[in-house]
Computed example of a mutant assay.
Amino acid sequence: MNRTRVKVCGITRLEDATMAVNLGVDAIGLVFYSASPRFVEIGTAAVIAAAAGPFVSVVGLFVNASVEQVKETISLVDLDILQFHGDEDEAYCNQFSRPYIKAIRMHHDLNPNKSILEYPSARGFLFDSWSQDKYGGTGEIFDWNRLASLRGRPIILAGGLSPDNIDRAVSTLKPYALDVSGGVEAAPGIKSSKLVQLFVDRCSKA
């Protein structure tokens, strides 16, 4: 776990996916939550997933989706892993015959150690900023020191990340991966090749 991996989430265009893969990201994220400005239609998502290649993970993000929606999506889009970013419980997350990541939104009174015990089948945990009316995509940073007791575990860190704070994120937590979206964008859902390159480069050196 010496190398911090990079996931670029909120991919909406084939050209951005190809660019991110060519720049060396480990994973790309496709958002299937219609309220998000980074929502992607299933047909476009299928094309993007097929172009990712065999060694880049394609992650599908869902927020309180119906079982039918998730099943339809995974039947049409070649997803490697699911990411549940809402209020889904363990039984819900574990029913789709796919490995999954559970996102934990860091409410001020949440105990991360207790929260992860509620999802024993999860492949990993992504920690993101809390918002009353948003499920991710806030662009805000939470107090990373709240995860200090989890250090040594495969932490996936999200929320307000950009090329400017990679060094601090890595030195604070030594995370398994950094999950970035808005911090590498020219506009919502439109990735900047310059910022993605900078993010990947700085992460590799942190």
Rank of each mutant, 00 (worst) to 15 (best):
T172Y: 02
S204N: 14
K205P: 00
L79E: 10
V47G: 02
S36P: 06
C203R: 09
A20G: 04
S115L: 13
L198M: 13
K134I: 00
G43R: 12
L117F: 01
F96M: 08
L178C: 11
A148V: 07
Y119G: 08
S192P: 10
R151G: 03
K174L: 10
A122S: 12
S204H: 15
A49W: 10
D109V: 09
F142M: 12
V40R: 02
F84P: 02
D80A: 10
D89H: 10
T73K: 04
A103R: 00
F84E: 05
L178S: 04
I141W: 06
Q83P: 05
G183H: 11
L110N: 14
V180Y: 08
D89T: 05
V59Q: 01
I74N: 11
K114Q: 12
R123A: 13
L161R: 02
N111V: 11
D179W: 07
L150S: 09
V47N: 06
A186D: 15
K191T: 09
P175I: 13
G86F: 10
A17C: 14
F62M: 05
I116F: 11
K71H: 04
F39S: 07
M1L: 12
S171N: 14
S149G: 06
F84A: 05
D128N: 01
S162A: 12
N111P: 10
S192V: 11
N94R: 14
E41I: 02
Y100E: 05
F32P: 07
V58G: 01
Q69R: 14
G124Y: 01
P163R: 10
A27Y: 14
V25K: 11
V196Q: 03
S171A: 14
R151W: 01
F142R: 04
S121M: 13
I74M: 05
L161H: 00
T172V: 12
V63K: 08
T4C: 15
V56C: 03
F32D: 07
G43D: 15
A20W: 09
D201G: 02
Y92D: 07
V21D: 07
L178R: 02
I104F: 09
G152K: 03
D179K: 00
